[in-house]
Simulated assay, not measured.
Amino acid sequence: MTRTRRPVVAGWFTDDTVPDGEFRLLGTRCSACAAVFFPREDDACRNPACPGGGALAETPLSPRGRVWSYTDGRYRPPAPYVSDPEAPWEPYTLVAVELAAEGMVVLGQAAPGVGTADLAVGMEVEVVPGVLHRDAEHVWTTWRWRPVGTEGRA
């Protein structure tokens, strides 16, 4: 049986099958103040200094950034997150990445095989497609952060 690929949250990132292969997080930019938001904002600008009235347009975020902080997740997440209590627990690495052009920090898991020992504050990383969970019907896709130059890693 073929599983359908589904994003964990629709509209937050490009499909990992895009023709040019350029996987990107998607935010929104306010036309009045140029503030960029991720997660995306579709109703109104969240910038308290915005003069108001600006249209919000989808904008791809920078594909690379610098590690701002990182840690390891050593606990099973609580509901509503998917966590099979029968499956062995595997710790994961969380990475906070500064996107300088957008003036923001974006949190996400590290790519498989990347642990805290592989990261350093200030290191350049890139966003890559990832899989959060598989069930009988779907492959739930998400984004991950990977150090630049480690494309061949698991």
Score class of each variant (00 low, 15 high):
F37R: 01
P39K: 04
Y75C: 02
V105W: 14
T14Q: 04
M104H: 09
G113L: 08
V114I: 15
N47S: 07
V97Y: 01
R29H: 11
V139K: 03
A101W: 05
W143D: 06
W143K: 02
T17I: 06
V9L: 11
V128Y: 06
W143C: 06
H138V: 12
A110N: 06
C45K: 04
C33F: 08
S62V: 05
F23C: 00
P51F: 03
G149T: 10
P129V: 13
P48Y: 12
L132E: 10
E86C: 03
S69E: 10
A34Y: 11
E137S: 14
V114E: 00
F38K: 03
G73L: 11
P77C: 09
P51W: 04
D42L: 11
G54S: 08
V97A: 00
P19H: 08
P129D: 12
E41Y: 03
R29G: 07
D135G: 11
D43T: 15
P112C: 01
T93Q: 02
D42Y: 05
E126S: 09
T4C: 04
V125C: 09
E86S: 10
V18L: 04
V8T: 13
W12K: 00
D20N: 05
T28Q: 05
V106I: 14
H138G: 00
P78D: 08
T14S: 14
V36T: 15
A117P: 08
S83H: 14
D72H: 07
R144A: 14
D84T: 07
L107K: 03
C33R: 01
L61W: 09
W143Y: 15
R29I: 14
P60L: 02
R64A: 13
W68L: 03
G130D: 13
E58D: 11
V131K: 05
V125Y: 08
H138S: 10
R144M: 14
Y75D: 03
A100R: 06
V95F: 04
A10W: 10
Q109P: 01
F38P: 04
G65E: 03
H138D: 14
D43E: 13
A10V: 12
V128Q: 05
A96K: 00
L132G: 05
W12C: 02
G11W: 10
C50F: 13
V8K: 12
D43L: 09
G149K: 07
R24V: 05
